[in-house]
Design a protein around this nucleic acid. Structure first.
Length: 472
DNA sequence: ATGTGC
Protein backbone atom coordinates (compact mmCIF):
# COMPACT_ATOMS: atom_id res chain seq x y z
CA UNK A 1 0.00 0.00 0.00
CA UNK A 2 1.58 3.25 -1.16
CA UNK A 3 1.24 6.21 1.19
CA UNK A 4 1.92 9.82 0.22
CA UNK A 5 2.86 12.08 3.14
CA UNK A 6 0.72 15.20 2.55
CA UNK A 7 1.55 17.02 5.77
CA UNK A 8 2.64 16.04 9.27
CA UNK A 9 0.08 13.54 10.62
CA UNK A 10 -1.68 13.15 7.26
CA UNK A 11 -1.02 10.48 4.61
CA UNK A 12 -2.92 9.87 1.37
CA UNK A 13 -3.66 6.63 -0.47
CA UNK A 14 -4.14 7.79 -4.08
CA UNK A 15 -7.37 6.73 -5.74
CA UNK A 16 -6.93 3.78 -8.04
CA UNK A 17 -9.64 1.53 -9.55
CA UNK A 18 -12.01 0.45 -8.16
CA UNK A 19 -11.65 3.12 -5.43
CA UNK A 20 -14.15 5.98 -5.84
CA UNK A 21 -12.30 8.38 -3.52
CA UNK A 22 -8.79 8.50 -2.03
CA UNK A 23 -7.87 7.16 1.39
CA UNK A 24 -6.62 9.51 4.11
CA UNK A 25 -4.71 8.24 7.14
CA UNK A 26 -4.15 10.57 10.09
CA UNK A 27 -1.05 9.30 11.89
CA UNK A 28 2.62 9.80 12.58
CA UNK A 29 5.01 7.46 10.76
CA UNK A 30 5.59 5.40 13.88
CA UNK A 31 1.83 4.95 14.46
CA UNK A 32 1.21 3.51 10.99
CA UNK A 33 0.14 -0.14 11.21
CA UNK A 34 2.75 -2.78 10.45
CA UNK A 35 1.82 -3.86 6.90
CA UNK A 36 3.01 -7.42 7.53
CA UNK A 37 0.66 -8.18 10.39
CA UNK A 38 -2.17 -5.69 9.96
CA UNK A 39 -4.14 -5.20 6.75
CA UNK A 40 -6.03 -2.13 7.94
CA UNK A 41 -4.64 0.17 5.22
CA UNK A 42 -5.88 -2.26 2.56
CA UNK A 43 -9.20 -2.02 4.33
CA UNK A 44 -9.09 1.79 4.06
CA UNK A 45 -8.71 1.37 0.28
CA UNK A 46 -11.48 -1.27 0.15
CA UNK A 47 -13.92 1.04 1.96
CA UNK A 48 -13.18 3.71 -0.69
CA UNK A 49 -14.94 1.51 -3.28
CA UNK A 50 -18.35 1.65 -1.56
CA UNK A 51 -21.22 3.16 -3.61
CA UNK A 52 -21.94 6.78 -2.72
CA UNK A 53 -18.82 7.38 -0.62
CA UNK A 54 -17.83 11.07 -0.50
CA UNK A 55 -14.63 12.91 0.43
CA UNK A 56 -12.29 10.09 1.39
CA UNK A 57 -12.07 6.85 3.30
CA UNK A 58 -10.50 8.04 6.55
CA UNK A 59 -8.37 6.31 9.18
CA UNK A 60 -7.72 7.74 12.64
CA UNK A 61 -4.31 7.49 14.39
CA UNK A 62 -5.45 4.43 16.37
CA UNK A 63 -6.39 2.49 13.20
CA UNK A 64 -6.04 -1.29 13.22
CA UNK A 65 -7.42 -4.38 11.50
CA UNK A 66 -11.17 -4.98 11.82
CA UNK A 67 -14.06 -6.84 10.21
CA UNK A 68 -14.36 -5.36 6.70
CA UNK A 69 -13.78 -1.77 7.77
CA UNK A 70 -10.70 -0.92 9.85
CA UNK A 71 -11.24 -0.07 13.51
CA UNK A 72 -10.51 3.65 13.61
CA UNK A 73 -12.27 4.15 10.26
CA UNK A 74 -14.67 6.86 9.10
CA UNK A 75 -16.66 6.77 5.86
CA UNK A 76 -19.61 8.90 4.75
CA UNK A 77 -21.98 7.99 1.93
CA UNK A 78 -24.41 10.34 0.16
CA UNK A 79 -27.95 9.09 0.92
CA UNK A 80 -29.57 10.70 -2.16
CA UNK A 81 -26.82 9.44 -4.48
CA UNK A 82 -27.32 5.72 -3.79
CA UNK A 83 -25.03 5.76 -0.77
CA UNK A 84 -24.86 2.52 1.21
CA UNK A 85 -24.87 1.56 4.87
CA UNK A 86 -22.65 -1.34 5.92
CA UNK A 87 -22.93 -3.22 9.25
CA UNK A 88 -19.16 -3.81 9.10
CA UNK A 89 -18.74 -0.02 9.12
CA UNK A 90 -20.31 0.11 12.57
CA UNK A 91 -18.87 -3.07 14.01
CA UNK A 92 -20.18 -5.98 16.04
CA UNK A 93 -20.43 -3.97 19.24
CA UNK A 94 -23.02 -1.46 18.04
CA UNK A 95 -22.80 1.84 19.95
CA UNK A 96 -19.92 0.70 22.08
CA UNK A 97 -18.91 3.90 23.83
CA UNK A 98 -17.63 5.77 26.84
CA UNK A 99 -19.35 7.53 29.71
CA UNK A 100 -17.39 9.84 32.03
CA UNK A 101 -18.65 10.72 35.52
CA UNK A 102 -17.23 13.38 37.82
CA UNK A 103 -17.18 13.01 41.61
CA UNK A 104 -17.10 15.95 44.01
CA UNK A 105 -14.04 14.74 45.89
CA UNK A 106 -10.29 14.75 45.30
CA UNK A 107 -7.95 11.82 44.98
CA UNK A 108 -6.30 12.53 48.36
CA UNK A 109 -9.70 12.37 50.12
CA UNK A 110 -10.49 9.05 48.46
CA UNK A 111 -7.33 7.22 49.49
CA UNK A 112 -8.47 5.90 52.92
CA UNK A 113 -11.72 4.59 51.38
CA UNK A 114 -10.35 3.33 48.08
CA UNK A 115 -10.40 -0.37 48.96
CA UNK A 116 -13.97 -0.21 50.25
CA UNK A 117 -14.99 1.74 47.16
CA UNK A 118 -13.36 -0.74 44.77
CA UNK A 119 -14.97 -3.68 46.59
CA UNK A 120 -18.35 -1.96 46.34
CA UNK A 121 -17.91 -1.20 42.63
CA UNK A 122 -16.76 -4.76 42.01
CA UNK A 123 -19.88 -6.17 43.69
CA UNK A 124 -22.20 -3.75 41.90
CA UNK A 125 -20.83 -4.23 38.37
CA UNK A 126 -22.00 -7.40 36.58
CA UNK A 127 -19.30 -8.38 34.11
CA UNK A 128 -17.63 -11.13 32.14
CA UNK A 129 -19.21 -13.44 29.59
CA UNK A 130 -22.87 -14.40 29.71
CA UNK A 131 -25.61 -13.30 32.10
CA UNK A 132 -25.81 -11.07 35.14
CA UNK A 133 -27.23 -7.56 34.95
CA UNK A 134 -28.19 -4.53 37.06
CA UNK A 135 -31.75 -4.57 35.74
CA UNK A 136 -33.72 -7.82 35.69
CA UNK A 137 -36.43 -7.06 33.15
CA UNK A 138 -39.83 -8.43 34.12
CA UNK A 139 -41.56 -8.49 30.71
CA UNK A 140 -41.17 -7.76 26.96
CA UNK A 141 -42.54 -4.22 27.24
CA UNK A 142 -39.52 -3.27 29.36
CA UNK A 143 -37.01 -4.40 26.72
CA UNK A 144 -39.09 -2.59 24.10
CA UNK A 145 -38.82 0.52 26.31
CA UNK A 146 -35.02 0.15 26.42
CA UNK A 147 -34.77 -0.30 22.63
CA UNK A 148 -36.99 2.73 21.94
CA UNK A 149 -36.10 4.99 24.85
CA UNK A 150 -32.48 4.19 25.71
CA UNK A 151 -31.23 5.88 28.86
CA UNK A 152 -34.31 8.15 28.80
CA UNK A 153 -36.38 5.06 29.61
CA UNK A 154 -33.88 3.95 32.26
CA UNK A 155 -34.14 7.37 33.95
CA UNK A 156 -37.97 7.28 33.73
CA UNK A 157 -37.84 4.00 35.58
CA UNK A 158 -35.74 5.49 38.38
CA UNK A 159 -32.20 4.60 37.25
CA UNK A 160 -30.81 8.12 37.05
CA UNK A 161 -31.53 11.87 37.00
CA UNK A 162 -32.30 14.51 34.34
CA UNK A 163 -28.66 15.67 34.14
CA UNK A 164 -27.78 12.16 32.91
CA UNK A 165 -29.91 12.84 29.82
CA UNK A 166 -28.82 16.45 29.22
CA UNK A 167 -25.19 15.33 28.91
CA UNK A 168 -25.74 12.18 26.85
CA UNK A 169 -25.26 12.09 23.07
CA UNK A 170 -28.76 12.41 21.52
CA UNK A 171 -30.10 13.27 25.01
CA UNK A 172 -30.20 9.59 25.87
CA UNK A 173 -31.98 8.07 22.86
CA UNK A 174 -31.97 8.11 19.08
CA UNK A 175 -35.44 8.64 17.65
CA UNK A 176 -35.55 6.26 14.70
CA UNK A 177 -35.13 2.95 16.55
CA UNK A 178 -37.24 0.12 15.14
CA UNK A 179 -37.42 -2.83 17.54
CA UNK A 180 -39.53 -4.74 14.96
CA UNK A 181 -36.34 -5.13 12.88
CA UNK A 182 -34.44 -6.72 15.80
CA UNK A 183 -34.52 -10.53 15.54
CA UNK A 184 -36.03 -12.68 18.27
CA UNK A 185 -32.58 -14.21 18.80
CA UNK A 186 -31.00 -10.78 19.36
CA UNK A 187 -33.76 -9.91 21.85
CA UNK A 188 -33.21 -13.16 23.72
CA UNK A 189 -29.47 -12.55 23.95
CA UNK A 190 -29.95 -8.97 25.14
CA UNK A 191 -32.81 -9.46 27.61
CA UNK A 192 -30.64 -10.67 30.50
CA UNK A 193 -27.74 -8.24 29.98
CA UNK A 194 -29.21 -4.76 30.55
CA UNK A 195 -26.70 -3.17 32.90
CA UNK A 196 -23.62 -5.33 32.38
CA UNK A 197 -20.07 -4.54 31.38
CA UNK A 198 -19.13 -7.56 29.25
CA UNK A 199 -15.49 -8.46 28.73
CA UNK A 200 -12.56 -7.73 26.40
CA UNK A 201 -11.49 -4.09 26.52
CA UNK A 202 -14.60 -3.03 28.43
CA UNK A 203 -14.08 -1.67 31.92
CA UNK A 204 -15.20 0.59 34.73
CA UNK A 205 -12.31 2.66 36.01
CA UNK A 206 -11.86 5.08 38.89
CA UNK A 207 -9.58 7.85 37.64
CA UNK A 208 -8.19 11.21 38.75
CA UNK A 209 -7.67 14.39 36.70
CA UNK A 210 -3.87 14.72 36.51
CA UNK A 211 -3.54 17.64 34.14
CA UNK A 212 -5.80 20.29 32.60
CA UNK A 213 -4.71 21.76 29.24
CA UNK A 214 -7.65 24.11 28.71
CA UNK A 215 -9.07 25.53 31.94
CA UNK A 216 -12.23 27.26 30.58
CA UNK A 217 -13.27 24.22 28.56
CA UNK A 218 -12.53 21.84 31.45
CA UNK A 219 -14.67 24.09 33.68
CA UNK A 220 -17.55 23.92 31.20
CA UNK A 221 -17.24 20.13 31.18
CA UNK A 222 -17.21 20.08 35.02
CA UNK A 223 -13.61 18.91 35.44
CA UNK A 224 -10.74 20.21 37.61
CA UNK A 225 -7.26 19.02 38.57
CA UNK A 226 -7.17 16.39 41.34
CA UNK A 227 -10.83 15.45 40.92
CA UNK A 228 -11.94 11.83 41.07
CA UNK A 229 -13.81 10.52 38.00
CA UNK A 230 -15.30 7.25 36.83
CA UNK A 231 -15.03 6.10 33.22
CA UNK A 232 -17.32 3.37 31.89
CA UNK A 233 -16.54 1.67 28.56
CA UNK A 234 -19.09 -0.85 27.26
CA UNK A 235 -21.57 -1.50 24.49
CA UNK A 236 -24.64 -3.42 23.40
CA UNK A 237 -23.49 -6.92 24.46
CA UNK A 238 -25.00 -9.95 22.70
CA UNK A 239 -27.88 -7.88 21.28
CA UNK A 240 -25.70 -5.67 19.09
CA UNK A 241 -23.51 -8.61 18.13
CA UNK A 242 -26.51 -10.62 16.91
CA UNK A 243 -27.95 -7.64 14.97
CA UNK A 244 -24.62 -7.20 13.15
CA UNK A 245 -24.47 -10.92 12.33
CA UNK A 246 -28.10 -10.94 11.10
CA UNK A 247 -27.69 -7.96 8.77
CA UNK A 248 -24.30 -8.95 7.35
CA UNK A 249 -25.99 -12.16 6.18
CA UNK A 250 -29.13 -10.40 4.95
CA UNK A 251 -27.14 -7.83 2.95
CA UNK A 252 -24.77 -10.42 1.48
CA UNK A 253 -27.81 -12.03 -0.12
CA UNK A 254 -29.39 -8.90 -1.61
CA UNK A 255 -26.23 -7.02 -2.68
CA UNK A 256 -26.03 -8.50 -6.20
CA UNK A 257 -29.67 -7.52 -6.78
CA UNK A 258 -28.71 -3.88 -6.14
CA UNK A 259 -25.78 -4.20 -8.55
CA UNK A 260 -23.27 -3.73 -5.72
CA UNK A 261 -19.92 -5.53 -5.86
CA UNK A 262 -17.34 -5.14 -3.07
CA UNK A 263 -13.73 -6.33 -2.89
CA UNK A 264 -14.28 -8.06 0.48
CA UNK A 265 -17.46 -9.89 1.47
CA UNK A 266 -17.09 -8.46 4.97
CA UNK A 267 -18.08 -5.12 3.38
CA UNK A 268 -21.66 -6.38 2.86
CA UNK A 269 -23.90 -3.34 2.44
CA UNK A 270 -27.17 -2.04 0.99
CA UNK A 271 -28.38 1.39 -0.12
CA UNK A 272 -29.45 3.51 2.88
CA UNK A 273 -32.83 4.04 1.19
CA UNK A 274 -33.40 0.31 0.45
CA UNK A 275 -35.61 -1.95 2.56
CA UNK A 276 -32.54 -3.72 4.01
CA UNK A 277 -30.68 -0.46 4.61
CA UNK A 278 -33.59 1.09 6.50
CA UNK A 279 -34.19 -2.13 8.46
CA UNK A 280 -30.54 -2.27 9.54
CA UNK A 281 -30.53 1.41 10.57
CA UNK A 282 -33.71 0.85 12.63
CA UNK A 283 -32.24 -2.20 14.37
CA UNK A 284 -28.88 -0.45 14.81
CA UNK A 285 -30.62 2.53 16.45
CA UNK A 286 -32.39 0.13 18.83
CA UNK A 287 -28.99 -1.33 19.76
CA UNK A 288 -27.65 2.21 20.22
CA UNK A 289 -30.43 2.88 22.71
CA UNK A 290 -29.72 -0.43 24.44
CA UNK A 291 -26.05 0.52 24.82
CA UNK A 292 -26.90 3.95 26.29
CA UNK A 293 -29.31 2.33 28.74
CA UNK A 294 -26.59 -0.19 29.57
CA UNK A 295 -24.12 2.58 30.46
CA UNK A 296 -26.87 4.46 32.35
CA UNK A 297 -27.59 1.43 34.55
CA UNK A 298 -23.90 0.86 35.31
CA UNK A 299 -23.63 4.59 36.10
CA UNK A 300 -26.60 4.31 38.46
CA UNK A 301 -25.10 1.29 40.22
CA UNK A 302 -21.72 3.04 40.59
CA UNK A 303 -23.43 6.21 41.85
CA UNK A 304 -25.12 4.31 44.68
CA UNK A 305 -21.79 2.78 45.73
CA UNK A 306 -20.05 6.19 45.60
CA UNK A 307 -22.78 7.82 47.68
CA UNK A 308 -22.65 5.06 50.28
CA UNK A 309 -18.84 4.89 50.58
CA UNK A 310 -17.75 8.52 49.95
CA UNK A 311 -20.90 10.67 50.18
CA UNK A 312 -20.17 12.04 46.69
CA UNK A 313 -22.48 12.01 43.67
CA UNK A 314 -21.28 10.96 40.21
CA UNK A 315 -22.36 13.67 37.80
CA UNK A 316 -22.40 12.94 34.06
CA UNK A 317 -19.68 14.75 32.08
CA UNK A 318 -20.68 13.12 28.76
CA UNK A 319 -21.61 9.84 27.11
CA UNK A 320 -20.54 9.24 23.52
CA UNK A 321 -20.48 6.25 21.22
CA UNK A 322 -17.55 5.28 18.98
CA UNK A 323 -19.27 2.52 16.93
CA UNK A 324 -22.22 3.99 15.06
CA UNK A 325 -23.60 5.15 11.72
CA UNK A 326 -25.59 8.39 11.73
CA UNK A 327 -27.51 10.34 9.13
CA UNK A 328 -25.96 13.83 9.34
CA UNK A 329 -25.74 16.94 7.17
CA UNK A 330 -22.26 18.02 6.04
CA UNK A 331 -20.86 20.28 3.35
CA UNK A 332 -19.59 18.35 0.30
CA UNK A 333 -18.05 20.35 -2.58
CA UNK A 334 -19.96 23.44 -1.42
CA UNK A 335 -23.36 21.69 -1.06
CA UNK A 336 -25.09 20.60 2.13
CA UNK A 337 -25.69 16.85 1.73
CA UNK A 338 -27.42 14.18 3.84
CA UNK A 339 -24.73 11.64 4.59
CA UNK A 340 -24.63 8.30 6.34
CA UNK A 341 -21.50 8.75 8.47
CA UNK A 342 -20.00 5.44 9.61
CA UNK A 343 -17.75 5.76 12.64
CA UNK A 344 -16.14 2.48 13.68
CA UNK A 345 -13.69 2.90 16.50
CA UNK A 346 -14.01 6.61 15.86
CA UNK A 347 -15.66 9.24 18.06
CA UNK A 348 -17.99 12.00 16.95
CA UNK A 349 -16.36 15.35 17.84
CA UNK A 350 -18.79 18.25 17.29
CA UNK A 351 -17.17 21.70 17.11
CA UNK A 352 -18.23 24.74 19.18
CA UNK A 353 -21.54 26.23 18.06
CA UNK A 354 -23.01 22.97 16.76
CA UNK A 355 -26.83 22.89 17.11
CA UNK A 356 -26.84 19.27 18.38
CA UNK A 357 -24.93 20.28 21.54
CA UNK A 358 -26.77 21.14 24.78
CA UNK A 359 -26.85 24.87 25.72
CA UNK A 360 -24.07 24.66 28.32
CA UNK A 361 -21.66 22.86 25.95
CA UNK A 362 -22.48 24.70 22.71
CA UNK A 363 -20.03 27.57 23.32
CA UNK A 364 -17.08 25.20 23.88
CA UNK A 365 -17.75 22.07 21.79
CA UNK A 366 -18.43 18.40 22.44
CA UNK A 367 -16.50 16.45 25.06
CA UNK A 368 -14.61 13.56 23.43
CA UNK A 369 -13.78 10.69 25.78
CA UNK A 370 -10.70 8.63 24.92
CA UNK A 371 -9.77 5.68 27.13
CA UNK A 372 -6.14 4.59 27.09
CA UNK A 373 -5.25 0.94 27.44
CA UNK A 374 -5.45 -0.66 30.88
CA UNK A 375 -3.13 1.03 33.38
CA UNK A 376 -2.38 4.01 31.12
CA UNK A 377 -3.74 7.56 30.89
CA UNK A 378 -7.10 8.49 29.39
CA UNK A 379 -7.88 11.82 27.73
CA UNK A 380 -10.75 14.26 27.47
CA UNK A 381 -10.66 16.17 24.19
CA UNK A 382 -12.97 18.69 22.53
CA UNK A 383 -14.27 19.02 18.98
CA UNK A 384 -12.64 21.77 16.94
CA UNK A 385 -13.94 23.98 14.09
CA UNK A 386 -13.11 23.03 10.51
CA UNK A 387 -11.89 19.54 11.36
CA UNK A 388 -11.64 17.02 8.52
CA UNK A 389 -13.34 13.58 8.54
CA UNK A 390 -16.93 14.74 9.20
CA UNK A 391 -16.35 15.80 12.82
CA UNK A 392 -14.72 12.56 13.93
CA UNK A 393 -11.62 11.60 15.86
CA UNK A 394 -9.87 8.60 17.41
CA UNK A 395 -11.44 6.31 20.06
CA UNK A 396 -8.54 4.88 22.06
CA UNK A 397 -5.03 3.55 21.95
CA UNK A 398 -5.65 0.98 19.19
CA UNK A 399 -4.42 -2.60 19.29
CA UNK A 400 -1.02 -3.62 17.91
CA UNK A 401 -1.29 -7.28 19.02
CA UNK A 402 -4.19 -9.69 18.63
CA UNK A 403 -5.73 -11.09 21.80
CA UNK A 404 -3.91 -14.36 21.14
CA UNK A 405 -0.54 -12.63 20.66
CA UNK A 406 -1.12 -10.54 23.77
CA UNK A 407 -1.89 -13.60 25.91
CA UNK A 408 1.29 -15.27 24.65
CA UNK A 409 3.42 -12.18 25.32
CA UNK A 410 2.23 -12.01 28.92
CA UNK A 411 3.37 -15.59 29.75
CA UNK A 412 5.52 -15.52 32.85
CA UNK A 413 4.09 -12.14 33.89
CA UNK A 414 1.55 -11.40 36.59
CA UNK A 415 -0.69 -8.73 35.05
CA UNK A 416 -2.53 -8.04 38.27
CA UNK A 417 0.65 -7.55 40.30
CA UNK A 418 2.16 -5.32 37.60
CA UNK A 419 -0.85 -3.03 37.72
CA UNK A 420 -0.85 -2.96 41.52
CA UNK A 421 2.86 -2.10 41.45
CA UNK A 422 1.78 1.06 39.59
CA UNK A 423 -0.58 1.84 42.48
CA UNK A 424 -3.69 0.82 40.53
CA UNK A 425 -6.33 -1.16 42.44
CA UNK A 426 -7.52 -4.14 40.37
CA UNK A 427 -10.86 -5.95 40.54
CA UNK A 428 -10.66 -8.40 37.63
CA UNK A 429 -12.66 -11.53 36.86
CA UNK A 430 -10.05 -13.61 35.05
CA UNK A 431 -6.29 -13.58 34.52
CA UNK A 432 -6.86 -13.95 30.81
CA UNK A 433 -9.12 -10.89 30.69
CA UNK A 434 -6.27 -8.85 32.16
CA UNK A 435 -3.57 -10.52 30.01
CA UNK A 436 -5.33 -9.66 26.73
CA UNK A 437 -5.58 -6.02 27.71
CA UNK A 438 -2.03 -5.30 28.86
CA UNK A 439 -0.76 -1.95 27.52
CA UNK A 440 2.03 -3.73 25.62
CA UNK A 441 -0.70 -4.98 23.24
CA UNK A 442 -1.66 -1.39 22.37
CA UNK A 443 -0.24 1.73 20.75
CA UNK A 444 1.00 4.51 23.05
CA UNK A 445 -2.06 6.63 23.88
CA UNK A 446 0.06 9.78 24.23
CA UNK A 447 1.38 9.36 20.67
CA UNK A 448 -2.17 8.77 19.40
CA UNK A 449 -3.43 11.94 21.09
CA UNK A 450 -0.46 13.94 19.75
CA UNK A 451 -1.24 12.78 16.20
CA UNK A 452 -4.95 13.44 16.68
CA UNK A 453 -4.29 17.00 17.80
CA UNK A 454 -1.55 17.50 15.21
CA UNK A 455 -3.93 16.45 12.43
CA UNK A 456 -6.47 19.04 13.63
CA UNK A 457 -9.12 16.45 14.52
CA UNK A 458 -9.67 17.82 18.04
CA UNK A 459 -7.91 19.49 20.99
CA UNK A 460 -6.70 18.27 24.39
CA UNK A 461 -8.66 19.35 27.47
CA UNK A 462 -7.58 17.06 30.32
CA UNK A 463 -5.54 13.97 31.12
CA UNK A 464 -6.86 11.33 33.52
CA UNK A 465 -4.79 8.73 35.37
CA UNK A 466 -6.08 5.33 36.53
CA UNK A 467 -6.70 4.79 40.24
CA UNK A 468 -8.60 1.50 40.19
CA UNK A 469 -10.05 -0.74 37.50
CA UNK A 470 -13.02 -3.14 37.41
CA UNK A 471 -12.80 -5.60 34.51
CA UNK A 472 -14.49 -8.68 33.09
C1' DA B 1 -16.58 -7.24 20.61
C1' DT B 2 -19.26 -12.22 21.26
C1' DG B 3 -23.88 -17.99 24.60
C1' DT B 4 -14.58 -16.78 22.35
C1' DG B 5 -12.69 -21.11 18.42
C1' DC B 6 -9.43 -24.93 16.66
Amino acid sequence: MELVEESPYRFRIDRHDPMRVPGVVFASRSLLPDAGADKSLDQVANVATLPGIVGASYAMPDVHWGYGFPIGGVAATDVEAGGVVSPGGVGFDISCGVRLLAASLDRADLRPRLDALMDGLSDATPRGMGKGAVWHLTDDTELDGVLRGGSRYAVERGYGVQRDLDRCEDYGAVGDANPAQVSERAVQRGAGQVGSLGSGNHFLEVQAVAEVYDEPVANAFGLRTGQVCVMIHCGSRGLGHQICTDYVHAMEKVMPGYGIHVPDRQLACAPVSSHEGRAYLGAMAAAANYARANRQLLHHAARQVFERVTGSDLSLVYDVSHNLAKIETHGVDGDQRRLCVHRKGATRALPPGHPDLPDDLRPVGQPVLIPGSMGTDSYVLVGTPGAPAFASTCHGAGRTQSRKQATKAVRGHDPRRELEAQDIAVRGKSRRGLAEEMPTAYKDITAVIEATEGAGLCRRVARLVPVGVVKG
